[in-house]
Structure formats: structure tokens, C-alpha cells
Amino acid sequence: MTASADHLKALLSAHAARDDDRFYGVAMQVAAKSARQGHGKLAAELRELIDAARAQKIPRLAPTPVVQPRGELANLLTAGYPETRLGDMTLAPEVHTLLDKVLHEQRQRGRLERFGFTPVHRLLLSGPPGTGKSMTAAALAKELGLPLFTIRLDGLISRFMGETASKLRTIFEAAAETRAVYLFDEFDALGADRAAGNDVGEARRILNSFLLFLDQAPPESLVVAATNHRQLLDRALFRRFDLAILYGAPSTQQAIEVLRRRLSEMDTSAVRWLELGVCTEKLSHAELVKAAESAAKRAILGGDDVIDQQHLTDALDERHALRHA
């Protein structure tokens, strides 16, 4: 055996400690031992692999276990460690496929970058309110074991607009230093069309700064922009993001799945799900969750854990009424 037990233990120890220099040093010892044992071809291949890995070494950024960002970042970001997983969400198949692509490329980031490619790391999520855009950012963070940093627009967009570009730089510098998911929610407040009639020169400069920083965003972190108003965004933004994912109201089947998921702890055996299809039309995921919770609370406060058809029908009707209030 070329590598001794001591070599194997040393390699594992160095890997666990993320000590690359020590790892490669032990690997070179294995190559030298191979040469002494007459395995010249293997020794040469090992040295080539080690030299290539050292030359193309990709810095590994780990999530920093901070409760809240400090310093200037404290006014710009809020930190969270979500528990929502992608499997907990009810999404259109095409959306789910794209998000699986993001996760797969991020998990294979090192392999891609060894060949000169970068994984998907800049996402634009758009669609009506309550369709799961912000929750998607949380789920991606959970799946990748990263913190979720949500950009506070009230801290970012200063009344002294010249400060905003400087604050943007601070955020993107943080993305280069700390691997995380960075969420720009309500992004249209920052990325509105530069050609809009009510635009001012400083707003254009802010957007230009964002485009520049986005181009330079490190692939280790995910930058996610979410908006309810896709039509307001400057067209140049769509070319800068790696993926633009469109969210919509759930189909009847998806709406029923949302209700079922939220009521999984209740007895729903009396519910005729297919008959609820008409009542769920045009309601968002968030509205359906609210309706399910309202029905559940009505049953619980009535002294029962059984959801009947009327509970759900009334709750869904209430959500429709609120839409038209």
C-alpha cells in the first residue's frame, strides 16, 4: 500500500482542520514514498495533481456564526439562520428545477471553478406578493448551510443619496469575506428603470454602482434580489443575473397541497379537497397559509381538532374579501 496508515490519518486531520499546506505536504510525502517503492508513474501523477490543485486553489469561505453583523453592517443587514428547506415549499415544477440547478452548481462549486467556470450565484426572483420569493432565499440558505443576510433598504437608501453607493460597496465586500445568502428584498426600490421619467441622476448612479458590484460578486456567496414589480426594473439588470425566476399564483393542485401541508397536524378527513379548487383561485401561497391557519384556529377554539369543509370555505372566502377590501 503506497500511503501508510499514518499518512491517511494525517491527510484526514489536515482536511478536517482546513490546513491546505499541511494536506499538500503529506500528499507530497505519499508521492515520494511511491517513487521509492518503484511506482514512478503514480508518483508523477500525484505530483501533477498536487501542483494543479495548488495553482488553482480556491479560497474556501465558511459561514461566520454571527448573531448580528457588527459595525456599519449592523445598520445594513439582519442575519438569520433559517429552518425552511426547499422540500417544505410548494413550487411550480419549473421553479423547483431551476432552484435544484442552483443548489447542484453551488455544491459542485470547486469542481466547476477548476475548469474556469463559476456556479450560478446571482438570482432575480420576481412575481406577485406571497408567492415564496423571500422564503426561497431562506430555503437556499438552509440547504447550503449558510446564514441569510437580508439587506435593510431603510439603512441602505440614504436621504443623502451619495452615501448609498458606498453602503452598497460595504455589502458586497461582506459577501466576498463571509459566505452567505444576501437577500435584497423589494428590490425595485433600488433597481428601478433608469429611463423612468421621475428618475434623477443620483438614482442612475446608484443603479450603475449596483450593476458594477453585481458583476464582481464572488461566486462563493449567493446574491438574491426579489421584487413584486418586475416591470419596474431596469432592463440591464436581467442581463447581469445568472437566473431570472418568475413566480406565480399556485395552480389548483398546488393550492390544495399548500393547505394540506399547513393543516398536517389537524384531522382533515372530512374535507372534500377537490371541491375547494374554485375557492383557491387567484390566492397566493401566503394567503392560502393564512386561510388554513384561520380555519385551524376556528376549529381548535371550537373545542375540536377536526377541520370540516365549512371551516376552510369560510376562511378562503375571507381571504378573497380582504383582497377586494
Rank of each mutant, 00 (worst) to 15 (best):
M1S: 11
A5Q: 09
A5R: 13
K9D: 09
A10K: 04
A16L: 00
D19R: 03
D20W: 01
M28P: 00
A32E: 08
A35D: 15
R36D: 10
Q37C: 02
G40T: 06
A43Y: 09
A44E: 15
L49A: 08
I50G: 03
A52R: 14
A53N: 08
V67K: 11
L76N: 09
E83N: 05
D88L: 07
P93E: 02
E94P: 04
E94F: 02
V102F: 00
Q106Y: 00
Q108W: 07
L112W: 05
F117T: 01
T118Y: 09
L124W: 08
L125F: 07
S134D: 09
A138F: 09
K142A: 14
G145K: 04
F149Q: 13
L153T: 00
G155L: 13
I157S: 01
F160I: 03
F160P: 01
G162T: 10
K167M: 06
R169S: 07
F172W: 04
E173W: 09
A175R: 08
A175F: 08
A180K: 08
Y182C: 14
Y182T: 02
D185F: 06
R194Q: 04
N198M: 11
A203I: 15
R204I: 08
L207M: 10
L212T: 06
A217S: 15
V223G: 11
H229P: 01
L232A: 05
A236G: 07
L246C: 05
S251F: 05
T252F: 08
Q254L: 11
V258F: 07
S264G: 02
D267F: 04
R272G: 07
G277T: 08
V278S: 11
V278N: 13
E281I: 07
E287G: 01
L288F: 10
A295L: 14
A299F: 11
L301C: 12
G303Q: 06
Q309E: 15
Q310K: 14
Q310T: 15
T313H: 13
D314Y: 12
L316I: 12
E318P: 02
A321M: 13
L322K: 10
H324L: 14
H324M: 09
A325R: 10
A325V: 07
